[in-house]
Design a protein around this nucleic acid. Structure first.
Length: 534
RNA sequence: GGGCCUGUAGCUCAGUCAGGUAGAGCGUCGGACUUUUAAUCCGAUGGUCGCGGGUUCGAACCCCGUCAGGCCCGCCA
């Protein structure tokens, strides 16, 4: 069973109606690590729907969280907003300074700035959650009753947090952080409480009162989370391994939510995504790949496959180089399989069966539109990379594929894929290994690798290519023919051609590439190679 | 200090919950396709299941210990 189906099954034991929730703080650039959170939730919801459950998928944007510090991408002016809520301060402009104009005219906030592009990415990747803005929810009084309960039973909550996380809370700790006279959550002392008011004294020596029912402040993180479970009615939530550890926020949350009068959701802890060779992704370290950037290179269904095929507790190493090609080709292979007929085989061992079921499940989760079946495009990533590099127009690419019988008319997903491929090729991420390049000088090392028998082919090839019509078809037949004329197999022709022209043992189809080059340069290169072999 | 996760073929991982002959994909190697050589198809190769004990007729799986990597007990997906 696929991991999402396992989670769905666990949910089905608890009832028929479910809310799967995810949440992210928009404190900086979103990266593909955040995508795992939301895709994990989306996949559980998908599996639950397939299991016949009534399920809603929500995404909570934690705009009520305060700005923790002046990040590297922010200008010094943001110093004044430390402790202020992300949904109530201006966004950084291009230079990292507060964009007051948009803030005042459009209400464009720090949270919006980072959230909006992420939402676009979600749309592209087929995730359409109900979005809940946390700050607005506070202001609308959604947290009111649960906050009242938390304040009324502050001692119980304090006891739970201290016992479970084995940390000591300050004497003046209170389960509500009021906003101070400047709008900050930092350094505010609670001096009294009578619902709905929490009285405070801030770091500027100002006294005031915070109205819980109007959201003039927020619950501290460890209570904020269970309170959300309560008022939204969350029954399942995936979260990063940081929250999942013993003593972590889920452990305290599951008890606190009971104090608040609700049940804890079914948990699912997932591992982080790291960038290959660079460790965990972190916005401050700058080693991130944003969801938008990733989607410019990778078809969304392939990004989905990456998450779908990895069990949540497995760390994922994301890599925009060769692994992407492997992953994309894996998608194509999987799409071409007929899992139902494979599973019909009675002789399968339990292991083989599980493996086929998991692959089928992963593909169900990977397709963009829920309930559809992936269709193989009949063009591998590798092949598309080749065509995109050798054909200057899209139409030439389609013609080549049509000629090969791979497609009749390109469908939309193939068109998208070609656009992404061109973006990938143009980006710094495109791997050297995939780049097609014809040598400008003989590569002696590669030539020496050639068998003695194959060496004469180089000279023969130089002659026949010098004489032939310079089109892909003619070149294509000249290469094997040159070998045959010498009593060798076509393979010898290719070996010689690759060694001489690309300095490799094998490579992509040569003829269409050569046809794009100048005939005299190719012939001259072959002649030089022939000379150096003598 | 306390706790969680991970460790299985060259690589990525299934299999551990319900103990029963070590599995897949990729890679590699070989063959076929006698002009689509990053393609496709066929075949082969490949593992003291981190290590040491214990329970058992039988352990990758359960128990105890141990090593290594990652993480949590302020904030982080």
């Amino acid at each position: 069973m696929h991991w999402a189906d396992v989670a769905a099954k666990a949910l089905s034991h608890k009832g028929d109606k479910h809310i799967v929730s995810t949440g992210i703080t928009p404190s900086g650039e979103f990266h593909i690590g955040h995508l795992r959170e939301i895709l994990t939730g989306d996949m559980i919801a998908r599996a639950a729907r397939k299991a016949g459950l009534d399920v809603e998928f929500v995404f909570i944007v934690d705009t009520a969280d305060p700005l923790r510090k002046v990040y590297d991408f922010l200008g010094p002016e943001f110093e004044q907003f430390i402790g202020h809520q992300l949904g109530s301060i201006p966004a950084p402009d291009k230079d990292g300074n507060p964009d007051w104009v948009r803030f005042e005219k459009e209400g464009w906030t720090y949270g919006d700035h980072f959230l909006k592009p992420f939402l676009q990415a979600l749309e592209q990747i087929g995730v359409r959650p109900r979005i809940i803005d946390n700050l607005e929810s506070y202001k609308a009084g959604r947290f009111d009753q649960l906050t009242k309960r938390a304040c009324d039973r502050a001692d119980e909550i304090r006891e739970a947090i201290e016992r479970i996380s084995s940390r000591e809370l300050a004497d003046d700790w209170f389960p509500w952080s009021p906003l101070d006279s400047k709008g900050s959550l930092d350094g505010v002392k609670v001096t009294g409480y009578e619902y709905p008011l929490v009285h405070w004294l801030d770091s500027h020596g100002v006294e005031g009162s915070s109205d819980i029912s109007k959201g003039e402040g927020k619950l501290p993180w460890r209570i904020d989370w269970p309170a959300k479970w309560g008022w939204i009615g969350v029954t399942c939530e995936p979260f990063g391994k940081d929250h999942g550890a013993a003593g972590g926020s889920y452990a305290t949350g599951r008890e606190i939510v009971q104090i608040l009068g609700h049940e804890a959701p079914h948990p699912l802890t997932y591992e982080w995504i790291s960038l290959k060779g660079q460790g965990a992704m972190s916005s401050s370290a700058g080693n991130t790949v944003g969801p938008i950037e990733a989607l410019e290179l990778v078809p969304p269904e392939i990004l989905r496959l990456l998450v779908a095929k990895s069990k949540p507790n497995k760390a994922i190493e994301f890599d925009t180089g060769m692994s992407l090609v492997t992953l994309a080709d894996e998608y194509e292979r999987l799409a071409a399989r007929d899992f139902n007929s494979e599973l019909a085989d009675e002789d399968l061992t339990r292991r083989q069966r599980v493996q086929i079921e998991d692959a089928a499940g992963a593909m169900r989760m990977a397709v963009l539109e829920e309930g559809t079946t992936a269709e193989a495009t009949a063009v591998t990533f590798r092949h598309l990379a080749l065509l995109a590099q050798t054909k200057s127009t899209d139409q030439d690419v389609w013609s080549s594929l049509q000629k090969a019988g791979a497609i009749s008319e390109p469908n939309q997903s193939l068109v998208d894929r070609l656009n992404r491929m061109r973006a990938w090729i143009a980006s710094k991420h495109f791997p050297e290994e995939m780049k097609i390049s014809i040598l400008s000088h003989p590569n002696d090392a590669a030539l020496q690798q050639l068998d003695q028998d194959d060496r004469p082919v180089v000279a023969a090839l130089a002659q026949s290519l010098a004489a032939c019509n310079w089109d892909a078809e003619t070149i294509g037949s000249a290469i094997p023919q040159a070998a045959k004329d010498l009593g060798l197999t076509p393979k010898s022709g290719y070996r010689a051609a690759y060694a001489a022209l690309m300095g490799k043992e094998r490579g992509p189809r040569l003829a269409p590439i050569l046809a794009e080059m100048r005939q005299n340069e190719i012939v001259s290169l072959l002649n030089q190679c022939a000379l150096s072999l003598e």
